[in-house]
Design a protein around this nucleic acid. Structure first.
Length: 400
DNA sequence: ATTCCACAGGAAACAGTGGTCC
DNA sequence: GGACCACTGTTTCCTGTGGAAT
């Protein structure tokens, strides 16, 4: 029986790797991915074309499910335009920001401002009114007489933030030109959610949606082609089974046409195959990879939960399939034994629905007549996984 | 037909933090 | 140093609900 560490080290030394270029197995590796989006590239370019003629293009809205390559295409078109424009003396500034990465409205505006060249001093990360930040952004555009293009990824998320705070930033962004004496502002919004427009203020829709481009989902055939191309470059020859490729494409394509998932799958499958010292990636490896990706996702999200959410999860685990009232009672007991103050039931109800959104538990509304109405929750993951993940947590050790 | 349970879940208010501005 | 701002996580208060029991 060989030692597993030695075995892996031996294999590595002998160069028995079947993956020759790992970088290619990441979604954002552009050159290859983007070939399948020729017509979309053209559409995006077309609608931004007025820039080259030194006039302001219309605001643009780009739709597409995750993993359809929309961000890649937009970024690529923009960098090309930037190359062209650099040679001319037409001042233009392209700025990209992702609403989901910037957790707040404030953060998003600051990130845009930073890229516009506003310093810490001119644009502090906190303390100012939103309208003040916005004013400073516009002032910069006016001063520089620049033509700014703001690309906002996951703009549906921004719309949500906006609706929560009641600030009309999207409206102001789309109509900013009316306030600019010199320079201009163009908005390019990217969204995963095709229905998000319905939730917007109609005034915003009319100006934001001046042009729209939809990225259709990849079908299984296209996904297969994309993976095959990557495999050709990333793996050594004949090291991936045909059925494995098919399975990969079917798994990812069947769901949402998500190329990102397909590429993740084949990468993880490759790593598993290597670890097992197999010469070929087989469909079994792909299946294993799919399972591993799922588990990893759950584990990292479990670990990132704050203490009280963890306690709630343990409470559910201890009484699988129980009502909110029972869970709350159990949670209160847990709080007592770890010596923490308990939160109100209202807050726990809210937490339960938040956890439900992450998919780790599932709830079902039950009407029990005289016994009122409640929601019954149960775990969708194994309690072993929870125990395994929480056992390193010092406060939780004793109660699992 | 009416009552009534045991919550769901919306709205608003609040406390605390970390900041700017004058 | 006080007024003000954004933001998060929470509490308080509230209205609504479907069907078993009466």
């Amino acid at each position: 029986m060989s030692d597993p560490i030695d075995r892996l080290l031996d294999a590595a030394e002998q160069g028995k790797s079947i993956i020759k270029n790992r970088d290619i197995l990441h979604f954002s590796y552009i050159p290859n991915q983007i070939q399948h989006r020729k017509s979309e590239q053209e559409q995006v370019t077309q609608s931004l074309l007025p820039i080259l003629k030194q006039s302001r293009p219309s605001n643009l809205l780009v739709y597409g499910k995750p993993g359809t390559g929309k961000t890649l295409v937009v970024k690529k078109v923009i960098s090309k335009i930037q190359e062209r424009v650099e040679k001319s003396n037409f001042p233009i500034k392209l700025v990209y920001s992702n609403s989901k990465e910037e957790t707040t409205l404030y953060g998003l505006l600051v990130s845009l401002g930073r890229q516009m060249g506003l310093s810490d001093k001119e644009l502090p990360t906190t303390g100012l009114a939103i309208s003040e930040i916005f004013k400073r952004l516009l002032n910069r555009i006016i001063e520089d007489k620049t033509n700014a293009i703001f690309v906002i990824d996951e703009i549906d998320y921004l719309a949500q933030l906006v609706s929560k705070t009641g600030k009309d930033i999207l409206y102001q962004l789309t109509r900013a030109n009316e306030r600019l004496d010199s320079g201009s502002l163009t908005l390019v919004g990217i969204s995963n959610d095709l229905t998000f427009k319905e939730k917007l203020d109609p005034r915003v829709i009319s100006s934001l949606g001046e042009e729209e481009i939809v990225f259709p989902n990849y079908d299984v055939e296209q996904i297969k082609k994309i993976i095959e191309e990557r495999i050709k470059e990333a793996f050594i020859e004949n090291s991936v089974d045909e059925p494995a490729v098919n399975l990969c494409a079917a798994m990812a394509g069947g769901e949402h046409g998500d190329a990102r998932r397909a590429i993740d799958l084949i990468r993880v499958a490759g790593e598993i195959a290597e670890r097992n010292q197999a010469d070929k990636v087989t469909s079994d490896h792909v299946r294993e990879a799919s399972q591993k990706i799922e588990e990893n996702k759950e584990e990292t999200s479990l670990k990132s939960f704050p203490l009280h959410e963890k306690l709630v999860l343990i409470a559910i685990m201890k009484a699988n399939g129980s009502s909110t009232g029972e869970i709350y009672a159990s949670y209160k007991a847990l709080c007592k034994s770890v010596g923490r103050d308990e939160l109100t039931q209202r807050r726990i109800t809210q937490m339960l629905s938040e956890i439900e959104l992450s998919g780790i538990i599932s709830g079902r509304l039950v009407h029990q007549g005289t016994h009122g109405r409640t929601k019954k929750y149960k775990l969708t993951i194994s309690s072993d996984l929870i125990k395994k993940t929480f056992k390193d947590d010092l406060t939780l050790q004793d109660i699992i």
